[in-house]
Amino acid sequence: MTTLDTYYSELVNPMTYQEFKALTEELVAEGKTTGDEQTEQRINFTKLNQQRMKRVEKQFVMEPELIELLTQNELNWNWLILVESWCGDGAQLLPAIAAIAEQTPGITLTVLLRDENPELMNTCLTNGSKSIPKLICEDVESGERLFTWGSRPAAIQQQVLKFKAENPDAGHDELVQQVQLWYAKDRSQALQQDLINIVRGVLTNSTTTAEV
């Protein structure tokens, strides 16, 4: 069995979602962002993301199927999410993930900055890259990593790949704008569908293992 200690020796600057929001507000007020790369672009993204997070919080509605999966099973899970304040995907996904965790008694969410936790980040790369946000689910009792998810819902990523194929000359800014429009239209549905599929698989596997 692979346990927590296998993945990292210590979590640096662990935060609740509310603490991450407070940090973001402080950074916006100071004209800063998380991480060492204090570029104008990332500082502006942090300011935009503050508004995006607020919008997601207001619009988020948890799917009944996901509620049933998470609340009708005896869970004791830690969710760790790696993110940065300048990350556009993170701003769209973190508030929804936080809301899901808050509505599930068996889940505790910890927010971590990617660049402060490179050891952990390196255990869940996406095609060799440090793409975020990245959600890691660990069983509290056994210390086993049950799944990782991210950095983008499958349905949104499919749209990204299709857009790139159909618009090979499109610039990065145009793609970013499109991604944000897709998130706004999706209203956290793609994320929840991904989690429904993953959680169902984890619980089914656990049941099968217990019966053997």
Rank of each mutant, 00 (worst) to 15 (best):
M1G: 13
T2R: 14
D5C: 11
Y8Q: 11
L11I: 07
V12E: 12
P14N: 02
M15P: 08
E19Y: 05
E19T: 08
F20Q: 09
V28L: 02
A29R: 13
A29P: 08
T33W: 02
G35I: 04
E37A: 13
T39M: 02
E40W: 03
Q41R: 15
I43M: 01
N44W: 01
T46S: 01
T46N: 01
K47F: 02
Q50K: 14
Q50V: 03
M53Y: 05
M53L: 04
M53T: 04
K54E: 15
R55T: 11
V56K: 07
K58T: 13
E65H: 10
E68R: 14
E68H: 14
L69D: 08
L70A: 11
Q72A: 11
E74V: 13
E74N: 13
E74T: 15
L75I: 08
N78A: 12
N78W: 15
W79S: 09
W79N: 08
L82N: 07
L82V: 08
S85F: 07
W86G: 09
C87H: 07
G88M: 05
D89M: 05
Q92D: 11
I97K: 05
A99F: 03
A101S: 12
T104D: 00
P105H: 10
I107G: 03
T110C: 05
L112K: 02
T126L: 10
S129C: 06
K130I: 14
K130M: 15
L135N: 11
L135Y: 11
S142F: 11
E144C: 10
R145A: 12
S151P: 15
A155V: 13
A155I: 12
A155F: 12
I156S: 12
I156A: 13
K162V: 10
K162P: 09
F163T: 03
A165W: 06
A165L: 07
E166K: 06
P168N: 01
D169E: 14
A170L: 02
H172Y: 10
H172T: 09
E174C: 01
E174H: 02
Q177A: 10
Q177P: 00
V179C: 01
Y183A: 00
A184Y: 00
Q189P: 01
Q189K: 07
D194G: 00
I196S: 01
I198M: 01
I198R: 00
L203M: 01
T208R: 10
T209M: 09
A210C: 03
